[in-house]
């Protein structure tokens, strides 16, 4: 017994998933499945690729062609899958550490190529799987087990990074704003090119506990109170946006897509014959 969505798109025998109580990743994973359902994609033609970390356990639960790779390398594996078989809808599920630290190079280059892959970043602001070390999205001055005196680093704005590198679709949603996130993922999948959607998750177990953010409910409330839609933000005075973060669609443009361009080269040879 499970909801129709879960029955249709998940390997229900693998549930419950390994994520901690209150972890936002389950909400984000559901949004990805909902987006796929809304678009009516053929399950056999969807490939979900992940790296290593909490986020990257998602594909194991999802009933598609699923590939759980090495740390940071999801996008590189996904690039191979997509180029080899462009008819597959390739979706990468990754984390803040996986895609912005160890996999940062693959991220910017996949974006630069504008290859038709949709990347959904489950950002929990921490390395959860290893027990709470600071990540590339841990805010400055916050704590991790490896930032016991406060984090010196500045956090990455992952959609801005991807957008600057050439991604043609970038957006951010949250576990609280799950409906909106679903729409953003849908639009990302529909975009013919590299799309990156950051889903802000909640990690009550490590990030939350280390930084006195309270319970899962408290962290969800924090998302609710501090996320400002970019369309709303445009009309707000600067001081109202202090300490807030933006959600919504940041970039939506059209550029030549990598695999289509490659196929043109192959077609050139086929014509010559």
């Amino acid at each position: 017994m499970a909801s129709k969505l879960i029955k249709d798109y998940f390997r229900t025998d693998k549930l419950p998933h390994i994520w901690c109580p209150g972890c936002g990743h389950g909400i984000l994973m559901r949004s990805v499945a909902q987006a796929i359902d809304n678009l009516g994609l053929d399950k056999d033609k969807v490939c979900i690729v992940s790296g290593i970390g909490c986020s990257s356990r998602a594909p194991g639960y999802m009933d598609f062609n699923t590939l759980h790779t090495t740390h940071g390398r999801a996008l590189a594996f996904a690039t191979g899958v997509k180029l080899a078989r462009p008819e597959l809808e390739v979706i990468v599920v990754t984390g803040d550490g996986d895609c912005a630290a160890i996999g940062g190079n693959h991220l910017i280059h996949a974006a630069r190529r504008n290859i038709n892959i949709t990347t959904v970043v489950f950002n929990n602001n921490i390395y959860g799987m290893t027990g709470g070390q600071y990540s590339p999205t841990t805010p400055t001055n916050e704590f991790g087990t490896t930032a016991p005196y406060g984090n010196i680093d500045k956090p990455f704005d992952i959609p801005a990074l991807a957008g600057a590198a050439g991604a043609t679709y970038t957006a951010r949603g949250t576990a609280y704003h799950a409906k909106q996130l679903t729409k953003l993922v849908e639009k990302g999948i529909k975009n013919k090119g590299f799309s990156l959607i950051e889903g802000i998750s909640i990690c009550p177990t490590y990030y939350g506990r280390k930084n006195k953010k309270g319970s899962a409910v408290d962290m969800m409330n924090w998302l609710k109170d501090n996320a400002v839609d970019i369309k709303v933000a445009e009309k707000l005075p600067k001081e109202k946006l202090e300490g807030k973060f933006l959600i919504g669609e940041f970039k939506n443009t059209t550029e030549p897509e990598y695999t289509e361009e490659y196929m043109k080269i192959i077609e050139r040879f086929q014509k010559e014959r």
Partner: peptide, 25 residues
């Protein structure tokens, strides 16, 4: 009709090749 890609690094090169193999090539 085959595919070539120059990846961003050596790790990406083998990763893409594994992806290509999983997709049947």
């Amino acid at each position: 009709g085959g595919k070539f890609i120059q990846m961003e690094d050596e790790i990406g090169g083998i990763a893409a090749a594994i992806g290509g193999s999983l997709a049947g090539l």
